Simulated assay, not measured.
Amino acid sequence: MTGKDVRQLQEARAAIPPGTRINVTYLANEDLQMRVAAARAVRDCGFVPVPHVSARRLQSAHELQTFLDALQQVGASNDVFVVGGDPPTPAGPYADSLAVIRSGLLQQHDVRHVGVSGYPEGHPDITDPVLWQAIESKAAALREQGLAGNVITQFGFDVDPVFTWLEAVRSRGIDLPVRIGVPGPAGIRRLLSYAKRFGVGTSAGIAKKYGFSITNLVGTAGPDTFIRALAERYAPERHGDLGLHFYTFGGLKATSEWIDDFPGARQ
């Protein structure tokens, strides 16, 4: 959710199981007050707030400390998700999420669990060797600092690159739990727009496997086929701790209700 989605969260509350982890984004057009208010609303609704920290948007260590202080004051600092962020040039001292993890400021504000990013289909602006070095370094830094963590991946429409990437992750000795990004039900045009922005593959063949056509943008698509394909091929001994992370492109309520109605969702 974003800082603007507090009302949506309250409307969706009945459809979301207590204790669900809900990420709160770090958008350039939202300020500290909005981000902290959203994290507090998540906590007040009985869920686990996971505020994002966007490394390259931070102008100083003081700004990071102020943000973490504010989260700590509302009881929303135990879990964070640290990401590099969109700006190509850092606004301050943090060139990437690893720099934030290594700063030591997280533990000083009761952070105990840190989420980091994974990219099964690569990143449009970062080479694969750099991505692999980054995730290996972040996993090592979390271990060294005694922080629990997980990896949340970009969303996608095809399970093939997901499993190829996941097996490569495990072969590198990275044993963090992985949450595979899944787009919640949304309009096809919107899904394709987000996919283009984040470099996610959307060929006609991939779209067909997922359950929609890129030549017919009318209607809504859900991740039914994708989730079933993940479940069929998932082998705990090879893939480790695996779960799902829903991107609520169609809204919190629509996504929560879809999950609630999905056969076997509670299992």
Results as ranks from 00 to 15, higher is better:
residue 26 Y to M: 08
residue 54 S to T: 15
residue 97 S to M: 03
residue 140 A to T: 10
residue 115 G to F: 07
residue 35 R to M: 01
residue 20 T to V: 01
residue 94 Y to V: 11
residue 92 G to I: 11
residue 59 Q to M: 08
residue 99 A to F: 04
residue 40 R to Q: 11
residue 150 N to I: 02
residue 148 A to C: 07
residue 23 N to C: 04
residue 36 V to H: 10
residue 40 R to M: 04
residue 89 T to K: 15
residue 35 R to Y: 00
residue 92 G to C: 08
residue 108 Q to C: 03
residue 21 R to N: 02
residue 73 Q to H: 04
residue 28 A to G: 09
residue 72 Q to L: 06
residue 111 V to T: 12
residue 112 R to K: 12
residue 54 S to Q: 14
residue 139 A to T: 14
residue 23 N to L: 11
residue 11 E to M: 06
residue 124 P to M: 14
residue 94 Y to G: 10
residue 73 Q to L: 01
residue 66 T to K: 15
residue 134 A to P: 00
residue 122 G to E: 02
residue 20 T to A: 06
residue 117 S to C: 01
residue 134 A to V: 01
residue 51 P to M: 14
residue 18 P to S: 13
residue 142 L to R: 10
residue 63 E to H: 15
residue 72 Q to K: 14
residue 101 I to G: 02
residue 39 A to V: 07
residue 21 R to H: 10
residue 147 L to K: 04
residue 9 L to C: 02
residue 117 S to P: 00
residue 142 L to Y: 04
residue 34 M to W: 00
residue 11 E to G: 00
residue 41 A to F: 08
residue 28 A to Y: 04
residue 126 I to L: 13
residue 43 R to A: 14
residue 54 S to I: 12
residue 35 R to L: 03
residue 16 I to D: 03
residue 33 Q to N: 12
residue 53 V to D: 05
residue 111 V to M: 06
residue 96 D to W: 05
residue 51 P to E: 09
residue 117 S to T: 00
residue 39 A to Y: 06
residue 24 V to E: 00
residue 44 D to M: 08
residue 143 R to S: 11
residue 17 P to V: 09
residue 102 R to I: 05
residue 30 E to N: 13
residue 10 Q to S: 00
residue 141 A to Y: 12
residue 130 V to E: 05
residue 71 L to K: 09
residue 38 A to L: 07
residue 96 D to P: 02
residue 103 S to P: 14
residue 108 Q to W: 02
residue 150 N to T: 05
residue 66 T to R: 15
residue 10 Q to L: 03
residue 132 W to S: 01
residue 84 G to T: 11
residue 71 L to R: 13
residue 100 V to N: 05
residue 69 D to T: 13
residue 32 L to Y: 07
residue 92 G to W: 13
residue 127 T to W: 01
residue 81 F to I: 03
residue 63 E to S: 14
residue 94 Y to E: 04
residue 30 E to C: 09
residue 114 V to K: 05
residue 146 G to L: 08
residue 22 I to Q: 07
residue 52 H to K: 12
residue 73 Q to P: 00
residue 126 I to D: 04
residue 68 L to K: 13
residue 119 Y to D: 03
residue 52 H to C: 07
residue 80 V to H: 05
residue 115 G to M: 10
residue 113 H to N: 06
residue 100 V to I: 13
residue 68 L to H: 09
residue 58 L to H: 15
residue 22 I to T: 08
residue 96 D to R: 09
residue 51 P to R: 13
residue 40 R to W: 01
residue 31 D to C: 03
residue 44 D to C: 03
residue 111 V to W: 05
residue 28 A to R: 11
residue 115 G to C: 03
